[in-house]
Simulated scan of single mutants.
Amino acid sequence: MIDTLIPTPTDTAEPAVEERTPKMSARDVKVFYGAKEALKGVSIDIHDDRVTAFIGPSGCGKSTFLRCLNRMNDTIPSARVTGTIELDGEDINSAAMDVVQLRARVGMVFQKPNPFPKSIFENVAYGPRIHGLAENKSELEAIVEKSLKRAGLWDEVKDRLNESGTALSGGQQQRLCIARAIAVDPEVILMDEPCSALDPIATAKIEELIHELRGRYAIAIVTHNMQQAARVSQRTAFFHLGEMVEYGKTSDIFTNPREQRTQDYITGRYG
């Protein structure tokens, strides 16, 4: 057992059937920036009944891998991705995959809240409008309200939907970005250090929201905060120097890791 200050994960509400068909499946995924290999053969499954956390020191490849899951690395000219990533059995890197539709199905919440310079309403309505998810104004209003409620923000903003989203506090802006992501009814939500710029109270609200969204969406979260990974996830993957060193139940990773590098990181010997 490892003596740390990290709370013991509980893996609460673990499904009775241990393994089911994964929502997303990655096999031997490598990422190159020019000649530099940034990610070295990562294989992992992401399920829709649990939160999967990616942990590891800065520059270890965890955010690079997360961006592979909705092809955000396509926006980097020097990036090249090899291996296979499937969403419900479909190869997301195939020529037949519509990248716009992929990013609607696999939403992303970034490290720094990035609301559009539009009203709160228009921030959430933007995706459903361009994807044709509402036939009229009342349907669009219903989607906005439902999304803001799911993001735990409705009661705070329902009387000022026409105000700018950028006028909200940092924590509210991040929940607005989550509402914007879920407004297009995604299947997977990727979160890249969503609490790193937030205070403890706002962080607690985001973590509570992750618990509430679990089961409705497959969720993968990158975090530098090991306590946060222990609190919100049921599975954890440890990355180091471009490799995925270890992956398993969060409780096992934090209390009884198989790899020495994992133990050294968890106990603060490096990172």
Score class of each variant (00 low, 15 high):
A26H: 07
A26S: 11
I143N: 00
L213T: 11
N93S: 15
T203S: 13
R71I: 07
A183Q: 13
A237Q: 05
E208R: 06
G268P: 03
S233A: 15
M191Y: 06
Q111Y: 04
G56V: 05
F32I: 06
R261H: 10
A237I: 04
G59R: 09
V51I: 15
S63L: 05
D98K: 13
R80Q: 15
A181F: 04
M244W: 00
L148R: 12
A142D: 14
I206A: 02
N225V: 01
E122Y: 01
P22W: 02
N136F: 04
Y247S: 15
D159F: 00
I130W: 00
T64C: 01
Q174T: 13
L190V: 08
G83I: 13
S196W: 02
L140W: 03
A237N: 08
G56C: 07
T262H: 06
N136H: 07
E246F: 02
K149Q: 14
L213R: 10
Y270F: 15
T4W: 09
A35F: 01
P77C: 07
S43T: 15
R50I: 14
Y217L: 01
R261K: 10
Q174Y: 09
Q173R: 15
K30N: 11
G89A: 10
S251D: 11
M97C: 13
I210E: 14
P257E: 06
L168Y: 02
S119F: 01
